[in-house]
Every structure is written in C-alpha cells, then in structure tokens.
Design a protein around this nucleic acid. Structure first.
Length: 350
DNA sequence: AACTCGTGGAT
DNA sequence: TATCCAAGAGT
C-alpha cells in the first residue's frame, strides 16, 4: 500500500528534480504562448535535436501570430521542409489564423484551444499547462511509459483508448501550483532517465516511489503491442532534362503522402519501360533512352519505396502541362522537396 | 479502432 | 540489416 502522502511525495520529487535538472532548450527560454505552441507541434513524433534548428528559424521568420497567419504557403512549407508530417504545418497556420482572428491571441482556455486544427489532447494540455499554468493533462509516449512503470499500469499503450487512463492518473497527481513543471517533468524523466530500454533507475528522483522498480519490472513495462511491418512499393523516377540544363519537376497531389511537394517525374511501377510511357504521357513529351543513376530504399512509417532513378533527355522541353515545370538547378531551391527527391537530386549532382 | 502521415537516431 | 521509436493528430 502507498503511504497517505505518496502523491505529495511524488509530485514534490518530480517537480523538484525537473526544476533542478531540466535541459536548457530554446522553447524553455520563452513564455510566449504562440512560440510554445509552435514547439509542441514541431515536437510531435519528432526528436528534440531535430526540432531545435527548425524552431529557431521558424520563430524568427514568423515571430508573431500575424506573421504566420498571412504568410504564403510556399514559404511556410519551405520553412518546414525536411521536418516531415507536413499537414502539421498547414494545420498550424490555419489554426493560428483562426486564433488570431477570433481571439487575437492563443486562448487561455482548453475548450477553445483544443478545438483548433492540429491541436489534439496532448498539445492542448501541453500548451495550456506550460504557457498558462492551467492544470491539464499532457499525455505523450513519455508520460505513458513513466506512469505505466510508476503505477504498474499494464494496459496496452498502443491502443487509443488507453490514453484516457493516463490522463486520469495525471489529474490525480498533478501539481496544481506548477502544472508546467509537473507535465514537463514527466516528459523530461521519460526522455533522459525512464527510457524505453535500460532505464537509468539509479538516477531516478522517484525510484523509491516506483512500483516497477520495487518489483524489478521496469524492463517489462510499458506493454505495447507491435504494429505490422510496412509494405514495399517499387518507385521509378525519370529525371528529365532538356538541352538547356533545366529539369522537369512535377507537384504531388494536394492530399495524401507528401502532399503538394515537388519531385522528379515518378511512376509507381517496377518496369522502366512502363515508367517511361507513363511519364511521357503525363507530361506530353517523348522521353528518350534512360540511364540508371541511383537506387535506394526510402522508409516511411507505414510504407517503403524501392526507388530506382534514371536520367533521360528531351531535345526541347516544350510547355509544361498541369502541375509541373522546368527548373534550373538553382531554381530547385525555391521548391519544397521531400527527402527522397533530395536524395535523387544529390545523386545527380545538381 | 485502425490506418495514414516523414524523418533520423539508437540499438 | 531490422526494428523501434520520438513532446500525435486527422480521418
């Protein structure tokens, strides 16, 4: 049985440790709710070290809500290029515009903030608690891992409904005098001490309060079911250049994977001859002989592209049709290119 | 509820 | 190389 003052001991040990040991991160140096919001969206499924340079550039270019609200989408996407999950950027801009026009600021109300596009249960709690000191749960993967161990919760954390159990636990435990340090303390603990494998229990401020530590079960928790492995798809790229050093680029559809991003003409087939026919037809030109340039595998969360890239030339580029165009190498920098396209570009030396 | 949506680092 | 996974949200 837990002692009567267990909750107070836990929240005191956690927040005390956090205030003393927290990493010095850029978004911990501001109290600007809008900047904190940006950081939380960037950090969704994305590592701290990856986010840091993006956060710096983004908050400089779009320093207030009005700047982001009315920025050109191409510039927004260029700033997000390489960060992945691109709908996050479009949803963030849409939500910032909505908040700016409706409230003139980031609303200090979980009900209102949580209705904004791209703001789910985690981001709602994180921004409300960190920016405004509102006691709201911010349950991410770290929090579920830490609390599953501390409280010996063996529900499958891969199941969507399980998150509610942890939200209720957080509301039981949260420090109402400092919800920010409590929520960030749980996440910080999960990030640097209570790691997925080989947790550093000897460095843990709540070790003596942890059920898993006492039972020697810290490596068994959390319980997380495996997801099925990705399917592979052939992916042929035909990088077409004209006689004047320009390359044919096409824009992906507005919806789905890598929405709206630019790529060298691409066909989802394993047959190079078929790819040439598809690309020729799609762009209204006659693609000549092809030369293999590079092969690689690009792994997404839910699928794998087996990419084979070829180069080909056409005597006269002609007029681009639809969502496509001819670009000189330096002009490619103005387009938003996903990583697979950057890999091809790099292999072509352009 | 299950699937979609990127990327890069750790083991 | 294979697998996991990292401050999730939308559909």
């Amino acid at each position: 049985m837990k002692p009567l003052n267990w909750k107070e001991d836990f929240r005191g040990a956690l927040t005390g440790w956090y205030r003393a040991e927290k990493r010095d991160l850029p978004w911990r140096r501001t109290r600007n709710p809008y900047h904190i919001w940006i950081s939380e969206v960037m950090l969704q499924q994305t590592r701290v070290d990856t986010v840091i340079p993006y956060y710096a550039r983004f908050t400089e270019r779009f320093s207030d809500m009005k700047e982001l609200a009315y920025a050109p989408e191409e510039e927004l996407m260029k700033m997000w290029e390489g960060l992945g999950y691109y709908s996050r950027a479009r949803n963030l801009q849409s939500a910032v515009r909505e908040a700016y026009e409706t409230y003139g600021e980031v609303p200090a109300d979980p009900e209102k903030f949580g209705k904004l596009k791209g703001v789910g249960p985690y981001t709602e709690g994180a921004v409300m608690s960190i920016a405004y000191g509102i006691p709201a749960p911010a349950v991410d993967g770290n929090v579920m891992r830490v609390l599953s161990r501390v409280l010996l919760i063996d529900e499958d954390i891969a199941k969507p409904k399980t998150r509610r159990i942890f939200e209720e636990a957080v509301m039981e435990l949260i420090d109402k005098d400092d919800p920010s340090s409590f929520n960030q303390g749980l996440m910080e603990l999960g990030a640097v001490v209570c790691t997925p494998r080989r947790p550093k229990c000897l460095l843990c401020p709540v070790r003596e309060l942890c059920g898993a530590y006492h039972e020697g079960r810290e490596e068994e928790l959390p319980v997380k079911s495996k997801k099925k492995k990705q399917q592979s798809f052939p992916h042929i790229v035909i990088a077409v250049h004209d006689g004047e050093g320009r390359w044919l680029m096409e824009q992906r559809p507005e919806d789905g994977l890598l929405a709206g991003m630019w790529q060298f003409p691409t066909a989802e087939t394993a047959d190079p001859e078929e790819a040439v026919r598809i690309v020729s037809e799609r762009h209204g030109l006659t693609v000549g002989p092809i030369d293999e340039a590079v092969r690689f595998r690009h792994v997404f969360t839910h699928r794998i592209w087996e990419v084979t890239a070829y180069t080909a030339s056409v005597p006269d580029g002609g007029t681009p049709e639809g969502r496509s165009g001819w670009f000189r190498p330096e002009e490619l920098d103005t387009l938003t290119l996903p990583n697979p396209t950057k890999k091809v570009r790099s292999a072509l030396g352009i």
